[in-house]
């Protein structure tokens, strides 16, 4: 199956679309949440969260997404991965489904499986390559070393890890899938600066060596400046400014962007 249409709202979400030099292109996205309780009584129980969002992610770039809490960043990322289906407009993906690192790592890791199992699983269903058990375990060890996790944690369950360890497991799980597009929602927020630097370096290496493209959501404008090529600023469900990080940080056009930069002492 390469495409899917939402009949009610007519939003188009399509994988393996013919895009040139881009891995994702969103056109006129309007995204809604449904109030299921209200739905019983009223027809029109849609609440709009994103308004006329247009953007693209170039092949091999890291695109930052910033904006205040509640402005719609996670909603945009969930629309891009196909989790949210109530939208109008068009979302095209050059490759398959993007991988996602969720903002709340706890809720995205299956609590009944050991970390080792969770990380090996994507390799078992890899359609491009038959992995032997030994190869799988070697690959898992390689990735967890890169996110600075100790091997003995592979024998643990998700609730037996610290917050920062869980966050790194969910990054490792997304990377195991050899994805072309990674959507990372606040991936380093629970990590201290030393490990943060290591994880950011890992993401940067993957993006250089494998041509991985990343949508990088963060409330930390400093981290965004360090790692991203371009950045989008979102306010109340709209993208109000976008450009290369140098353009936007040196010469912000919108008052809102200036405010954000000022608040971060930049």
């Amino acid at each position: 199956m390469s495409g899917k249409t939402n009949t009610e709202l007519n939003g188009i979400w399509k994988m393996h679309a013919p895009l040139e030099g881009e891995v994702l292109r969103a056109t006129n996205l309007n995204v809604f949440y449904r109030d299921r309780a209200k739905l019983l009584f009223k027809q029109n129980a849609l609440k709009q969260v994103l308004y006329d969002v247009n953007f693209h992610i170039k092949e091999g770039e890291i695109l930052g997404l910033c904006g205040e809490s509640g402005c719609g960043k996670s909603t945009l990322s969930k629309t891009a991965t196909g989790i949210i289906k109530d939208f109008t407009g068009e979302l095209l993906l050059k490759h398959g489904q993007p991988q996602m690192v969720f903002q709340d790592p706890y809720s995205s890791l299956n609590p009944s499986k050991k970390i080792g199992w969770l990380l090996e699983e994507p390799l078992k269903v890899d359609r491009k390559k038959q992995w032997t058990g030994e190869e799988r375990r070697a690959r898992v060890r390689e990735i967890i070393a890169q996110v600075e996790l100790d091997e003995h944690l592979l024998e643990r369950y998700p609730d037996e890890l610290s917050g920062g360890q869980r966050q790194r497991v969910s990054i490792a799980a997304a990377i195991m899938r050899r994805t072309k597009l990674l959507i990372a929602d606040e991936p380093v927020s629970a990590l201290d600066v030393t490990i943060q630097a290591q994880v950011l370096k890992l993401l940067d290496d993957l993006h250089r060596n494998l041509g991985l493209s990343i949508l990088f959501i963060s409330h930390d404008l400093r981290v965004v400046y360090q790692i991203c090529d371009r950045v989008m600023i979102m306010q109340k469900g709209r993208i109000v400014e976008q450009g290369t990080v140098d353009e936007v940080y040196r010469n912000p056009q919108q008052e809102y962007t200036k405010q954000l930069l000022r608040a971060a002492n930049l």
């Binding site: 629970a190 409330h219 405010q259």
Partner: peptide
């Protein structure tokens, strides 16, 4: 922020805040 509110509403003598602001932007 809901968590922070729920924890402070009863005016405790000791408040333990474990990474209370990780997901928040600088203004908040």
């Amino acid at each position: 922020r809901v968590m922070i509110g729920a924890a402070t509403i009863a005016r405790p003598k000791i408040l333990i805040a474990d990474e209370p602001t990780t997901a928040l932007d600088v203004t908040i």
